[in-house]
C-alpha cells in the first residue's frame, strides 16, 4: 500500500500533523490497514526530503504541521490518474496452498476447500454485519469512503468463495474423467466431496 500517496492526498485537503493524518486515514478505511504513528512520521520525513511536503512550524500544543507543496500536488494528481499496477500479482497463499494440495499425495483437497470456504464465509458475514451497522443513507463523505472499503472486502471474499466453488467443481469433474479414462497418472481424483485426493500409481 502506498502510505506516501495516501498521506499526500490527505494533506491536499488541509495542513495537518502526524496523529491527525492517521485519524483521517482511519476514518476513511476503518482499521482495515492500521497505520502506526511512527510509520506516519517516517513517511512525513521522507515527503519533506523529497520536496513533496514541508513542515510549517508548530501549533499551540507543539504538533509539527505539514503542508503539501506544488510538487506534492502534482504527485497526488498523477497517483489518482494512474491505474494501480497489476503486473505482479500479489502472492496468494490460498492459491499456492491449493496448487500444492492437488499435487502432493495424501492431501484431502475437498476438506481443504471446504474449511477455507467456511472461514471465508465467516469473514464475509462479519463484513456484512459491519455494513448493516453502517447503513446506506445520509452518509458523510468519510463514512461513504469506509462503506466502499467494506464493499471492496466483501467483493474480494465473494470472489475467493466463487473460486473455491470453481476449484471444487473442476476437481470433481477431473476425478470423473480420470476414472473413465482408467486413471492416468497426474490426475487428481476425488471420489466424493471431502474425499482425499489420491494420485494414481504410475
Amino acid at each position: 500500500m502506498s502510505v506516501k500517496h495516501a498521506l499526500l492526498a490527505l494533506l491536499e485537503q488541509q495542513p495537518m500533523y502526524g496523529y491527525q493524518l492517521r485519524t483521517e486515514f482511519e476514518q476513511r478505511t476503518g482499521t482495515t490497514w492500521p497505520l502506526n504513528v511512527g510509520q506516519v512520521y517516517t513517511t512525513l520525513t521522507r515527503l519533506e526530503r523529497d520536496g513533496l511536503a514541508s513542515a510549517q512550524g508548530e501549533d499551540t500544543e507543539g504538533h509539527v504541521i505539514y503542508r503539501i507543496t506544488d510538487a506534492g500536488r502534482e504527485e497526488v494528481a498523477t497517483w489518482f490518474t494512474t491505474p494501480v499496477a497489476r503486473t505482479q500479482p500479489p502472492r496468494d497463499e490460498l492459491a499456492i496452498k491449493l496448487a500444492l494440495a492437488v499435487t502432493v499425495p495424501g492431501v484431502d483437497v475437498g476438506t481443504v476447500i471446504q474449511q477455507q470456504r467456511s472461514a471465508t464465509m465467516a469473514a464475509l458475514q462479519d463484513y456484512t454485519r459491519l455494513k448493516r451497522q453502517a447503513g446506506t443513507t445520509g452518509l458523510e463523505p468519510a463514512e461513504l469512503a469506509w462503506s466502499l472499503v467494506l464493499d471492496s472486502l466483501v467483493f474480494a471474499a465473494e470472489a475467493e468463495i466463487r473460486w473455491l466453488d470453481h476449484c471444487e467443481a473442476r476437481l470433481r469433474r477431473a476425478a470423473v474423467e480420470g476414472a473413465r479414462q482408467g486413471s492416468p497418472a497426474q490426475t487428481a481424483q476425488t471420489t466424493q466431496p471431502g474425499a482425499p485426493v489420491e494420485r494414481s500409481p504410475r
Binding site: 471446504q114 464465509m121 464475509l124 458475514q125 463484513y127 456484512t128 448493516r132 466424493q192 466431496p193
Partner: peptide, 17 residues
Amino acid sequence: HEARHAAWADRVVFLRD
C-alpha cells in the same frame, strides 16, 4: 448461490448432492 447474499444470514448451510 451467491456468497455475498448468503453473508446476510446468521447461519450459512452448505449443500452438496
